[in-house]
C-alpha cells in the first residue's frame, strides 16, 4: 500500500462491541485512518487494537470521532491518536500507555486515570478525579493539558506524569474551585494557571519554583494546545502558573511501627 487508507464507519445504532469489532477489522485490514460518524456513547473506542498490526503502524493510526464517545475512550490505548469533535465522557485515557487523545470539548471524571504514557488535550473543563494515580516510567511520561478547570481530587495519588491546567474557562478574577488537589501525590507535577488557595491543596504537596525545564515544557504544550484548538494562547503567561509537586516520593514512610 503506497497511500494511507482511510475508512469511514457510521456508528449510528451500533452496540459498542459491534462498532469496536468493525474498527478492529478495519485496522487489521490496513486502515491508517478510521473516521467514526454519529457516535452516541459507545464505550472503549481504541481499546481492542492489540494484535491487529505492529506497534509502529498502531502509532500512525488516526481515529477521528464525530459525536460523543462513551466511557473509557482509549482505555489501555497503546499508540493511536484519537481526535474527538465533541465532548468525552468518564475515563478517557484510562490506563493509557502511548498515543494521543484530543477532545474538542469537555471531559468527564477520572480523565487520564492511571495513565503511564501518551498525551491528552482537553479543550474545555474536566470533571472529578482527573489525572488520578498517573504514573511514569523510564522515557514514558503522560502529559495532560486541560484548557479549562477541573473539579475536586485533581491529581490524587499521582505517581508521575504532568498535568497542565490552563484555567481558560475561569472568569477574570475567579479562582479554581477544585479541592483536595494532589492528595497522596508522590510523583509527577501539576501546573495550574490561576488562583488557588493553600487549603485547596492536599498535605504533602509543595509549591516549588518553575525550573527552566518546566518553562520549556509548558511553552511547548501551550503552543500545541493553541495549534490543536486554533486558540489564541498569547495571553497565557508562565508567571501565572503554580507548580505543585510532592514533598516526598515516600509519603507513607512514617505511618508504620516497625
Amino acid at each position: 500500500m503506497s497511500i494511507a487508507t482511510s475508512i469511514e464507519i457510521d456508528a449510528a445504532g451500533l452496540y459498542y462491541k459491534e462498532l469496536n469489532a468493525q474498527i478492529r477489522d478495519a485496522v487489521s485490514e490496513g486502515a491508517l485512518k478510521v473516521v467514526l460518524k454519529n457516535v452516541t456513547g459507545q464505550r472503549y473506542i481504541g481499546t481492542n487494537l492489540y494484535g491487529t498490526v505492529d506497534r509502529d503502524t498502531l502509532r500512525k493510526l488516526e481515529i477521528e470521532i464525530h459525536g460523543t464517545p462513551g466511557n473509557d475512550l482509549g482505555m489501555f490505548l497503546d499508540g493511536p491518536t484519537i481526535t474527538v469533535h465533541g465532548n468525552v465522557m468518564d475515563g478517557s485515557g484510562n490506563t493509557m500507555n502511548h498515543g494521543r487523545i484530543v477532545a474538542h470539548g469537555r471531559a468527564g471524571d477520572i480523565t487520564g486515570f492511571s495513565a503511564r504514557g501518551g498525551e491528552m488535550f482537553i479543550k474545555g473543563n474536566a470533571g472529578y478525579r482527573v489525572g488520578i494515580h498517573m504514573k511514569e516510567y523510564g522515557d514514558m511520561r503522560p502529559v495532560m493539558t486541560i484548557g479549562g478547570a477541573t473539579q475536586d481530587f485533581l491529581g490524587e495519588y499521582m505517581a508521575g506524569g504532568v498535568v497542565i491546567i490552563l484555567g481558560l474557562t475561569l472568569k477574570p478574577g475567579e479562582a479554581h474551585y477544585c479541592n483536595h488537589v494532589g492528595t497522596g501525590m508522590h510523583g509527577g507535577m501539576i501546573f495550574l494557571r490561576g488562583n488557588i488557595e493553600p487549603h485547596q491543596i492536599g498535605t504533602g504537596v509543595g509549591m516549588p519554583e518553575l525550573t527552566d525545564k518546566d518553562a520549556e515544557l509548558l511553552t511547548n504544550y501551550i503552543a500545541e494546545y493553541g495549534r490543536l484548538f486554533d486558540t489564541d494562547v498569547s495571553e497565557i503567561k508562565l508567571e501565572d502558573f503554580t507548580k505543585l509537586a510532592p514533598l516526598s516520593v515516600r509519603p507513607y514512610k512514617q505511618v508504620y511501627a516497625y
Binding site: D72, D90, G91, N94, I110, F113, S114, R116, R129, I132, H133, K135, E136, Y137, G138, M140, E156, Y157, A159, G160, G184, H186, G187, V249, R250, P251, Y252, K253
Partner: peptide, 17 residues
C-alpha cells in the same frame, strides 16, 4: 511494575474507576 526505582508503590484502597 513500571515505576521508578525506590519510590513507594501505592495501591489506593478502591479502584478509582
Amino acid at each position: 511494575r513500571m515505576i521508578p526505582m525506590g519510590t513507594d508503590a501505592i495501591s489506593p484502597a478502591p479502584q478509582h474507576d
